[in-house]
Every structure is written in C-alpha cells, then in structure tokens.
Design a protein around this nucleic acid. Sequence first.
DNA 1: CTGAAAGCGCTTACAG
DNA 2: CTGAAAGCGCTTACAG
Lengths: 334, 334
Amino acid sequence: MVTMAEVAERAGVTKQSVSNVLAGKSVRPETAAKVNAAIEELGYKPNLLARSLRTGTTMTFGLFVPSVADPFYSSVVEEVENVLVRHGYNLLLATTRHDPEYARAHLENLTARAVDALLVAGDAGVVQQLPLLAAAQFPVGLFAWEVDPPQSLPVVSIDYEAAGFLAGRHLRDLGHRKVAVVASLPFHAPRVAGLRRAFAADGLDIDDSMVFTPASDDASAGFAAASAALAADPGLTAIFATRDVLALGALDAVARTGRRVPEDVSVVGFDDLALVGHSEPALTTVAFPTREMAQQAVELLLRAVDAGKPPTNAISLLRPSLTVRASSGPPPSA
Amino acid sequence: MVTMAEVAERAGVTKQSVSNVLAGKSVRPETAAKVNAAIEELGYKPNLLARSLRTGTTMTFGLFVPSVADPFYSSVVEEVENVLVRHGYNLLLATTRHDPEYARAHLENLTARAVDALLVAGDAGVVQQLPLLAAAQFPVGLFAWEVDPPQSLPVVSIDYEAAGFLAGRHLRDLGHRKVAVVASLPFHAPRVAGLRRAFAADGLDIDDSMVFTPASDDASAGFAAASAALAADPGLTAIFATRDVLALGALDAVARTGRRVPEDVSVVGFDDLALVGHSEPALTTVAFPTREMAQQAVELLLRAVDAGKPPTNAISLLRPSLTVRASSGPPPSA
DNA sequence: CTGAAAGCGCTTACAG
DNA sequence: CTGAAAGCGCTTACAG
C-alpha cells in the first residue's frame, strides 16, 4: 500500500500538506495541484484505520436485527442503509437471532471502538443486554421496540397497541365475534392487547384459548398455528396474525380446510410487506412508515455523533395505518 | 477508554505482558493472574482499531448484495453471517442497488483497508467494476454470478442454465407447448437459455415475443409482466418466472383473469423462498443450496486471508434441483 | 500557509 | 519469560 509519506515525497511537500488537501482545508493552489498529481500517479488511498485510530471516529454504523431472513427486518436494513449511504457511513450488520448470547457477543465486539453508533432493532434477545447497551461508549438507539421500552435509551418505535386496535376495530366493525389470534408471544403482547381493547368496547372478549403462538415467525409456523386455531374452533370467522408472514401461512391454512377467504374466514396481517398485495387473496394488514422510522432513528444517532454528546433521550412512536385489501370481509352470518 | 498501558501499570507489568496474555501466549501464571485481575477491575477492552492498524487485519468481512429487500439476497446475507459468526468475523454490508456507481463508491470505501475479504453477490451493477475488484488488496470472490463469470476472480455460483433446463423439462414433460417467460433480462439470460434448450429437444421454441421483462424483481412487477403475457397470448398454458417473487405476482395475474392455477395455467418459479410453500397454490420452483454456497464462498476467502495469499481461482457451480408443488400440472388440452 | 514533532493504542522484533 | 523501543499511517497542535 502506498502511504501518505510517499505521496508527500513525490509531491515535494510534507505529510501535513497532503493531509490538509485530503481534509479539504485551505491550501495553496500549487501545493494542492502537486499533491493531487502525486495522489493520482501513485494511486494513493488514505488508510482509514490509521485515520480512525487518530480521530476516534470510524464512519461505521452498527445495526442489530433479530434476523435478515425476516422480511420486516430486511426492509429495516434496507432503509437504514439508504440513510447511511447519504451520510457517508458504512453499515456493520449483526444478527441477534432472538438470542441474548449472540446479542452479548456482538455487543462486546462493537464496544471496542468498532462503530460510531448502534441501532438495535427488535427487543427479542436484547432485553437482557440493556445494561451493556447503556454502558456503551457510543450513542445507542432502540428501534421497533415493543414491550415496555426502557427509559434509559432513546426509542423509535411503533404504537403497537394502537396498531392492534386498528386491526381489531376493523374486524369488529365488519361484525366478527369469533376471532382467533396467531401471535408471537411474549413480544407481540401489545398488538394483542390493542386487538382486545377494540373488542372490549363492545363487551366482547377474545379468550386466551384462541390465542396461538407460532414456533417462529415464518409462513410454515403461521400455517401450523392457524390450522390449530381452525381445528380448535371451526366456527371462528376471522384470524388476526401479528406478522404478515404468519398471515400468509394462515391464508393457506384456511384454504386447506376448504374454506374461502374472506367469505368464510377473514385474515388480517401486520407489516404490509411488499408482496402481500399479491397474495391470494390480497392481504388486509396494518402498515407503518418503516422508511420514516429508519430515517428518524439513524439521524438521531448521527446527530449525537456529530455533536459529541448522547442522543436526545426520548421515545418516538410512529402511527400505524390500516391497509384494507381482499382478505377481510363480513362474517358468513352477517 | 481504559488503555493497555493503564492495565499494565495497575498489574505492575509492562504492556508487553498484557498483550501476551490477551494473545494467549505462554505467560508466567502469576503474571497472567495479575493482568487478568487488572483487566477485570478496570473493565479493559482492547482497542481493535489500534490492533488492526498494527496487524493489518480487521476481522471484518465485506459483502455486496444488490438489495436486502430481495428475499433471495437476504437469505444470502443470513447464511454468510452464519458462517462469519463461527469464524469470529464481523459483517460489513453494502447494497449495490444494481447500480455501478453505488458499487464503485462502496468499493473505494473498502479498498482503504476496511475489510479482510470481500464477497460480491450478483452481477448486476458490478460487471463494470471488475477491474477495481481485481485490483483490490484483499481476497475477492464472486457469488451467484450469472452471465459470463469472469476468469480473473474465483466464483461460487449456480448452474443457471441447468436450472432453467430443469424447469423447462418439467413443463415440457407435462405437455406444455405454449409457455411465456417472465425474466429479468439481461441478467437472467442463462435461465431462459436453459428453458429453451429443454423445449428445443422436442423441436419446440419459445418465441421472443413471449419473453417479458419486468421492471424490477418484485411481486408487482411480476404481476404486470405476467398480465401482459396473458393478454398477449390468451392460449398460453404455462408461465416460467425467473424469480419466485415474480412468480408470486404471476399467480395473482392468472387469478385476476379468472383462470385457475394449475388447471388452466401452470406457474413455475425460481429460488424456493421459504414462503412459496404456502402461496396459493404452493409454487413449483427451482431450488439450490444457498447455505452450502455461502459456506463454500466465505471459507474460500477466509482461507486465503489466513494463508496470506490470493484465493484459489476456480469456478464452482452448485447443482439446482426442482421442487414440484401444486402450481404446475398438465395443460388443459392434455 | 508550511515544516518538524508528538501521539492515537496496539504488536512485534530485540536484548536481557 | 520479561523489559524498553520502534512503528503501523494517520491527524493535530505548535512554532516558524
């Protein structure tokens, strides 16, 4: 690798001048010209490691997600990276796999000055590591945190309870009374609570026996959980799934029992993934502004990095909305 | 931040001994004990930046993907990260967005010693940057490269032509004669060529007018392209989509014309995404071993890093297989 | 505006 | 096995 000293020698100036040219500081034009020529001839690239060691800043942003295979979190990664590119930051990605040990190991790694800031998406597997997160030397933010957001760190999230309420009110207004829930508990408890609140307004309740927890957040687990729900109560008229991937499995589960969506059973999901507009039938789902959330969270942290102080400690809850498509309708009896 | 010098002072030894303990070199037991105690008391974490500057190794692995929102590439990210975690490496992720400029910008960034190795997944947007890739100071590998893999760099990929052939033979054996193709060209040309070869064995051909190129690789674009195909030739009996996400849109497009899959029109996809086992109907698709590919590619590069020499320059083509589900069947006339 | 020096926090030869 | 020194490639005060 060619070094700054070699560039300086070639240009007949000191390293200092080379550094100044690179940093865009005011330099005599002919010096700049000589330096740039030397950089060009030698194909010089500044060593970012050396710069980082000196400046204490790495231009690298850490992001933790439970899984990238999960379409919701992969969209988070995409939106975060969009913002980072604009700010000239690199993305260091770590997958926590809903596992506190993975989260801890990655965190210990990053603590050693590897990132300028860290955004942690999803609470599963990270709840146990809050003390480590709070003790980090760099700004840390929490993203899409659902259960009891901690006070100690800034949070950018969704009003999950309100989101569940939107779905519940929609089903209730359509006339549904017998609803099953497919929910990844305990993490999706607020969504279920919102759903229940919508029904409670009419004096209705969703029995605990009609809440089914899938083994994981994917279509197969959603299929299995929804199949169990349909078997448990053949008279149910609607299924609310707390993730679109689960809802896709539920659509299949309903079809396999020979029933139609939405004529016999309505299905409502949560996430509004790009492809659920083309499922059969197109999925009614709760949507939220992932892009705006990502932008807000990343910029909160980058501002803190620039200012050299901790980020504003606040909780910001983005508002969900309901996207009504073909998978929901009145119950058969109505 | 507490430094190694402070630990040494606290333990009453030199930095050297602290460094030796951390590196696991043979150290006198009582020295090790004193050092470990001091590390514990002070909460010392070695500064990885300083270590990297000295050793020239960063324990960071770069991965380029066209997009993380694309389920195929997000599964690549997941599998790559699985392997990296086992080797103690961090993942620096960059999205090239099918754009040569993004690819170049990210590459220039990494060139400055930020990664120990780089895996580039997908050829779109990267073809133009091959000279830069070949000139990198660290091992570079190509992954899931489809069109004319370059000779200059190691490649771990799929036999895309064979994959297209598998899909084509399946449709041909079922008796289909009028097939439309939804293909992201030019990058998916080998898949289409394989499909054509299967039909050519029976003296059949797929007319260029029945090859439709979607605007992007997602369900909506697949829906639009398949709708165009169905409008262009109402007599077609099968649609081959070169990505599952496109095929999901095609399933919807067929349904919207009031036809059934597979009774009226068969649909075959490509990727075997986790959720297409639960689409309506479940999708017949070409599958390939992403996990094995990722493992092979990452370990090829990490071996090169360890050995301090360029990776073995070879091309490795993994074999595809066909997963037959409910979306394909004999044509109506058969 | 430019030159010579110090130092970021490590690791790696090199003597004892 | 331990100690004192040099150096990875930068940037940042500090004099001229």
